[in-house]
Design a protein around this nucleic acid. Structure first.
Lengths: 200, 200, 200, 200
DNA sequence: AATGAATGAGATTTCATTCAT
DNA sequence: CATGAATGAAATCTCATTCAT
């Protein structure tokens, strides 16, 4: 149980992370300055370094902090659904919801983290498989109960399903095509994506 | 018809672009130095600035230069195919081929260009729709002849199809999962992706 | 007579000084942080500033505090010796003893204090003459009683004698040549140094 | 044979080193900024880094560059002297000359280099033995021909002789006692130091 | 046209010092 | 008295870009 001091310490770390998400999303990780983040968080430049080892560490910590919450959200959402098709639909819905509610965070996850240092890139990909594994789980179940086609290669499908969903989300974030709402997109993505997997 | 001098000028520009592709892929756009590119290209630092306005311009020029060739490749490949399903398969095959033959280029397209400056982000998206429009063309045709379901939203589908393909390619590049060859992946991706679109 | 409270105040100041000696010796005055000293002393960073005006002041106070004890040690040791040659031998013995017993302190005296700010440098030299004056006293006496050569310039000799002793000590601390023990060195240093001064 | 370009490159490196000597002597290594050195050298800040890896490297390079010249000077000066006593006198004379002609350099050698990072400290001591070995050579010769006492421990004597000379020099630089000229000091130092070593 | 040394703005990071608790 | 989180000035170093040769 955190003492009052620890709690406020955690709160400040959180505040800096939120600021970083906002600033990195807007300016990009490399173009953004630590100074920018500090200003957004309302702290002094040096304060950042009391909570994070360096700029890279800030990005990594941000990622881990947020990732934890996101994976939880997915688990909670999928727990009570048994039909794999419904699970897949729910996965997409949750994913789009997350993005709709925090586009800045999504930008950081989808764009900023993917580049940066080679080290960070590797790191990202490694963490990234968390997402893929959720989908793999759904596919496996669906295959076992004969819902999905037996020739379907789970390993490849989990990737392309994720890619499909992710790209729809990214394009929405980038607003390149603000012509669609994410909720519309959910229907379309589900229908078309899922039908291809069915066994019958 | 270019004179000999002009030709060699073009050749040097090409050489710098190739060097940039290699260096940006390996180090990332921001982490790579202009010096690195110059060394890789075998020219002096200053020479780069005789051919490109600045570092950003090098990335953009690189993109445009390559994009032209790639779009040509696609057009040529799809020209003589009339069945939309076959066209989609061909699109995937060509895409995977491109990536297999020049993974560095793909990295730059997929990762570096997606972020960089906000300015570049916008720029990228605009160019990016060229890709998407090829897919859109295929879908439109397929819909018109009743091959694809009439409820299918072309605008969203072109995006998610691209995302699916792209992600399979990215994962292959990253080698995170070297467990699949791109040719295997082609089958799986086509089958599952396309079946969902069929009208019957 | 100090109250209990004052005593504990003095004790904490002492504790900080000891910590500073250790830390400065190991890391060097500039490379060491106030935080390091605080940690070594087992107090908070800010506490240091309740006892010392700033980092420079810590070094100066350290010096003065230690210097007092050292000069006392010398005075006590030399008090009951009348023969100047024996006094010189004793001086060397005491000096080497000090260094053997507290090499950290010696490092701070010999190395750290010598540089630092120009201000500190001046300060050091000024305090430094305390040492030299002890030697000068011995030489004067020896000259007066005809023990040391009359042409001997006390002013220069006090310096070079100190330098000789000090360097032997420094080399021992540095361990660059751990080949000699300080007690061996005492003999050699005394013999050779002193013989040159004799009048006969 | 250096080309014109290489020559001017070497010249600029030299210019920066001279500036560094001056600035480090005046302000101390840690208190001085790279900016200060750049200004003194009449170049831009960044230029320093074209010639030296970092601030530490500047100090080390400075040391090595100068050390080479100094050792040469000693070797040339001692080459044609056979009497070890005369050699020792000459050593002192040359040493004092060097210091008189370039007090700034001496300060850097004597004060700045001795502290700085632990790494530099070690480095300094290692290079330092070059000096000591010259003296050791003289002592050895003098002992062999029965000029110096046979009980004399060369290893310790080389150290204390150097210390004696060095301290006289340092005090002169510091001007703490501008009361003596270095040439006066030479006589005194030689006489007193050397007499102690004689065998008869 | 080509070179690459030089520039200097600007970014990251450190750390002595302060002050609210 | 003591604490230690916060500050922000300042230092080192990088690197895109320029320009004399």
């Amino acid at each position: 149980m955190p003492t009052k001091r620890e709690k406020s310490k955690e709160a400040k770390k959180e505040k800096i992370i939120e600021a970083a998400v906002k600033v990195f999303a807007k300016k990009g990780f490399y173009t953004a300055n630590v100074k920018d983040v500090a200003k957004e968080a309302g702290v002094a430049d040096g304060t950042i370094y009391l909570y994070f080892k360096n700029k890279d560490d800030l990005l990594i910590s941000l990622f881990e902090h947020k990732m934890r919450g996101i994976l939880d959200t997915f688990k909670r959402a999928l727990k009570n659904i048994s039909d794999p098709l419904d699970q897949l639909k729910e996965f997409i819905k949750v994913y789009f919801n997350l993005i709709e509610n925090d586009p800045d965070l999504s930008d950081v996850f989808q764009v900023e983290l993917r580049q940066s240092t080679k080290f960070l890139k590797d790191y990202h990909n490694q963490q990234f498989s968390n997402y893929l594994n959720i989908i793999a789980g759904i596919l496996e179940k669906g295959k076992k109960i004969g819902f999905f086609r037996s020739e379907m290669d789970i390993h490849i499908c989990k990737i392309f399903i994720f890619g499909a969903i992710d790209e729809v989300a990214r394009q929405w974030i980038l607003g390149a095509d603000a012509k669609y709402s994410l909720s519309e997109a959910t229907e379309q993505t589900c229908d078309n994506l899922v039908k291809g997997l069915l066994a019958f």
